[in-house]
C-alpha cells in the first residue's frame, strides 16, 4: 500500500523520539493525559462563561439562562418520566432507522458495487438522489403517515442510507484486483467471494459509513419530532419553547448534544476496532 504520505517516519529515526508530533497521525498515548485535562478545562470554561455572561448582562438574561438555570431545569427533566419516554422514543426511531438504512445500504452496495456494469448503470441515479435533502420529504411524510413513527423513519432512513451506500461502494471497489483474480482462479463462487474477499475489504468502509449515518440519523430523528411532531425529544423541545420554558428548552438542546456526542464516540470506537485489525489504512476524505 502506497498509503498516506503523513505517516512516513523520519530517516534519522530509531533513537530520536520524534519531537514534533505534527508528523504523526495521532498524538502518542502518553500525551493524551494533558490533552484530556486541557479539554476538561475548555468544558469548564464554557460552563463558567454561560453562567457569567447572562449574570453580568452581556447577553439578555430572559433569552440566555445561566448554566445553573439550565442545570436545574435538566435536573427537573431527569426526574420526569415524560423526559425518559421522549429519550427512548428518539433513540428508538434513531436505532430502527439506522438499522434499516445499514442493512439496505450494505446489501445494495455489495450488489451494485461488485459488478462494473451495475456500478455504471446506477451512478447517475445515485448522484442525483443523494444530494436531495431528506427534509424535502417532510411534506409527503406528513401527508402519508402523520405523526406515526413511519414518518420519522422515512426521513431517518433516507438520510442515513446514502452515507452507508456510498462508503460500501468505495469499499467494494477497493478490493485488490490481484486477490480478485486469485479468488476467481481458485474457483471461488460468487457467494464465497462476497464472504471471504469483498466483505472483509469493505468492512472498515462500512464502519465509517455507519458512523456518519448514525450522526445523520440522530439529526433527522430529532428534526422530524420537532417539525412533524412525532413523540420524542424534538417534540418536547417544541412544547417547552412554545410554553416559554426557556431554561428547559436549553436543557433539552444540551441533552440532544450529549446524545450526539455519545453516538459519535461509540461509533468511533467501533470504527477504530474495525480498522485496527485491517491492513488497509485510509483517510476519511471522500476521494
Amino acid at each position: 500500500m502506497s498509503g498516506s504520505p503523513a505517516v512516513v517516519s523520519p530517516a534519522g529515526g530509531s533513537t530520536a523520539p520524534v519531537s514534533d508530533t505534527a508528523a504523526l497521525p495521532r498524538a502518542p498515548r502518553r500525551r493524551s493525559m494533558p490533552q484530556a485535562v486541557l479539554g476538561l478545562f475548555g468544558l469548564v470554561a464554557l460552563v463558567a462563561l454561560v453562567e457569567i455572561l447572562p449574570r453580568i448582562g452581556v447577553v439578555p438574561r430572559e433569552y440566555f439562562p445561566t448554566s445553573s438555570g439550565i442545570g436545574s431545569a435538566l435536573a427537573d427533566l431527569v426526574g420526569q418520566g415524560e423526559f425518559w419516554t421522549a429519550v427512548l422514543d428518539t433513540l428508538q426511531g434513531w436505532a430502527l432507522g439506522l438499522a434499516i438504512a445499514a442493512v439496505a445500504g450494505v446489501v445494495l452496495g455489495i450488489l451494485i458495487g461488485s459488478s462494473r456494469f451495475t456500478r455504471e448503470l446506477t451512478a447517475s441515479t445515485i448522484e442525483f438522489l443523494r444530494p436531495i435533502p431528506s427534509v424535502a420529504l417532510i411534506p409527503i411524510a406528513i401527508l402519508l403517515f402523520g405523526t406515526d413513527i413511519e414518518s420519522k423513519l422515512l426521513l431517518v432512513v433516507y438520510a442515513s442510507f446514502w452515507q452507508v451506500l456510498i462508503q460500501v461502494l468505495y469499499g467494494v471497489q477497493d478490493v485488490d484486483p490481484v486477490a480478485q483474480d486469485t479468488a476467481r482462479a481458485y474457483g471461488l463462487g460468487r457467494w464465497a467471494r462476497v464472504r471471504y474477499l469483498i466483505w472483509p475489504t469493505a468492512l472498515p468502509y462500512v464502519m465509517t459509513g455507519l458512523r456518519l449515518a448514525a450522526a445523520v440519523a440522530l439529526i433527522l430523528a430529532v428534526t422530524s419530532e420537532l417539525v412533524i411532531g412525532n413523540p420524542g425529544l424534538g417534540k418536547l423541545l417544541a412544547t417547552a419553547q412554545s410554553g416559554g420554558a426557556i431554561a428547559t428548552s436549553y436543557a433539552i438542546v444540551v441533552v440532544t448534544g450529549i446524545l450526539g456526542v455519545l453516538v459519535n464516540v461509540v461509533f468511533r470506537v467501533i470504527e477504530r476496532r474495525a480498522l485496527s485489525w485491517h491492513p488497509s489504512q485510509r483517510g476519511e476524505l471522500p476521494a
Partner: peptide, 26 residues
C-alpha cells in the same frame, strides 16, 4: 486545540435543527 476540541465536538453533535426554536427566541 486541546482546550477547545471537546467544546467544538459538543457543538457539532447538537442536531442543528434544534437551534431554530432557540434562536427564534431572541
Amino acid at each position: 486545540r486541546g482546550v477547545l476540541e471537546p467544546v467544538l465536538e459538543f457543538f457539532r453533535a447538537i442536531p442543528p435543527p434544534v437551534l431554530v426554536p432557540i434562536f427564534m427566541l431572541f
